[in-house]
Amino acid sequence: MTLLNSDRRVAWLLGIAGLLPFIGASVLAWWAPAVWQVTAIYGFTYYSAVILSFLGGVHWGSALQVPRPGNTRRLLLAMVPSLIAWPALLFDIVTGLWVLLAGFMLIGGYDLSREGREGFPSWYFKLRGLLSVVVVLLHCVVLLRLSG
């Protein structure tokens, strides 16, 4: 099943729009009044955990969509982002952000693997690659703010 061009455009627009909370919170973490900076950093962290969990759900859905060898493994691996994201919220904020950053890098690596690419159109990985790079860089921006 392939998406229509209009569906592909919507997927790209929604993906890019999904960066807005990351971008907004990163900006606020640096330049907002102190009270808002704290809220922005926590908001960034919570949103990060939600999105990381969502990425695992993408692979869960893919494994259920088309029966193929290795689906059991893929279903198990699809749980890993949630199992990284949830405990990250229990750590102190800096440790949690490092854990989330590692989680995004791990799921990005899995997305690039042969198994991770199965069932997805090639354009999806251009979108995921762009989104992953921006999200990782924004984690670094917020971590830099916390180190200063």
Rank of each mutant, 00 (worst) to 15 (best):
S82T: 14
G119D: 13
P87V: 04
F125Q: 03
Y110S: 14
P87R: 12
I107V: 15
L90F: 14
L97T: 02
S82L: 14
A102R: 07
R128G: 00
F125S: 05
P81E: 01
T95Q: 11
Y110N: 11
K126Y: 06
G119V: 08
L127H: 10
F104T: 00
G119K: 03
I93G: 01
Y124N: 10
M105R: 04
D92N: 14
L90H: 11
L131Y: 08
V99C: 04
A88C: 05
G109W: 05
G109T: 06
V80F: 09
W123S: 13
L112F: 04
L131F: 02
A88G: 04
S122M: 00
L127S: 07
S113Q: 11
G129D: 05
L106I: 13
F104D: 01
E118R: 06
A102S: 13
W98F: 14
A102V: 12
L100W: 03
G116C: 09
I107C: 10
G119R: 11
G116E: 14
V99M: 03
P87E: 10
V80R: 12
L106A: 12
P81L: 00
W98H: 14
W98K: 09
L112D: 12
L127Q: 08
L90V: 14
G108D: 13
E115Y: 00
G109M: 08
A102M: 09
L100S: 08
L100R: 08
A85L: 01
L106Q: 03
R114E: 10
W98Q: 10
P87Y: 04
G116W: 08
D111K: 02
L101Q: 07
F91I: 00
I107M: 13
L127N: 05
E115I: 04
L130V: 13
L83C: 10
E118S: 07
G129M: 09
L130S: 14
W123L: 13
V94Y: 13
R114L: 06
A88H: 00
F125P: 11
G96L: 04
I107Q: 05
L97N: 15
K126Q: 09
Y124K: 10
M105K: 05
R117C: 03
G103C: 01
W86M: 15
M79W: 01
G96R: 03
V99L: 07
G96S: 09
R117V: 05
R114Q: 14
V80C: 09
I84S: 00
G103Q: 11
P81C: 01
G103T: 00
A85V: 04
I84R: 02
G103S: 01
